[in-house]
Computed example of a mutant assay.
Amino acid sequence: MTPKAAAAKAAAETNRYSYIETMKKAIVVGATSGIGKELAILLANNNYQVGITGRRSELLAELQELKPGKFVASVFDVTDINTMPQNLTKLVNELGGLDLLIISSGTGDLNPSLDPQIENQTNAVNVTGFTAVADWAFNFFEQQKSGHLAAITSIAGLRGGRHAPAYNASKAYQINYLQGLRQKAVNLKLPIFITDARPGFVDTPMAKGEGLFWVASPKKAALQIYRAIESKCKVVYITKRWRLIAFIIKHLPGFLYNRM
């Protein structure tokens, strides 16, 4: 290789690493399918280096193949709260930093018979796992003095629901927890932003039951969530028309709501 060619190659490598360093860094917890997967793709298309997590390694590998070099995968379960912090720390080190963490992992099922196994699994993911990830992220951003935590909760968290009691209750927990973290950030006087994305019905396996309406595609839901994150919105309903339903749910008298 001639000296000129060697110099050109060295310059190209320097530019490549410089570009990687200037890219924003994000982690999507629960990126194997649905909204989480679409958000990961959107971030990768918008100058983010993205850490993707989930329980199913084959689905994370498929996502990596879509955008070679843009994703760093980590296989773990959010309910394993003993190893989760180490996994996230390792992922941040591989990314070279962290600007944004999105909690997209979640579960829930119709449970008219109040099967304890369904309720306990819902709480394990949506409460215990969610709390562990949210706390890790907030502590990281507090130490860093900046950052953005976003989470996909649900309009179901506004009131209780007879079809899936643990799901509604766990989403109410998430909504209130995020509000607590937002208040904590303000009290600390730090630029740590908290975004609470509350979808209605989205065309994923999570959407169960009859009479579903205003069902959004995962891509449309992800795009609106991404825009809300970029705008640093505190609360956003997905899709936007669900704000009307949220208003009705909040203000419907209890004696009427209980008959639904």
Rank of each mutant, 00 (worst) to 15 (best):
M260Y: 15
G34W: 06
E58Q: 07
Q49C: 06
D203N: 13
T89C: 13
N87F: 13
H148L: 00
Q224V: 03
T128W: 01
N47L: 08
I248L: 14
G106P: 05
G97V: 02
A124N: 08
L223H: 07
G209K: 06
N47P: 06
F130L: 04
A8S: 15
D115P: 01
A150Y: 04
V50D: 00
I52M: 06
P68I: 03
G211K: 02
L59Q: 01
R55Q: 09
F193Q: 11
D99Q: 02
T107W: 11
F76N: 12
K208T: 07
K232D: 04
R259S: 15
F201K: 01
V92Q: 09
A10W: 11
I81E: 15
L181H: 02
L60M: 06
F76A: 11
F193C: 09
K4R: 15
D135E: 12
I41G: 03
A124G: 07
G129H: 00
K25T: 04
Q174T: 08
L101I: 10
M206T: 09
R55W: 08
L110E: 07
V29H: 05
K70A: 15
G96F: 04
A169M: 09
L158E: 09
Q144A: 05
F247C: 10
G129C: 01
V72L: 14
G30C: 09
I229R: 00
P165R: 01
V202Q: 06
F213T: 13
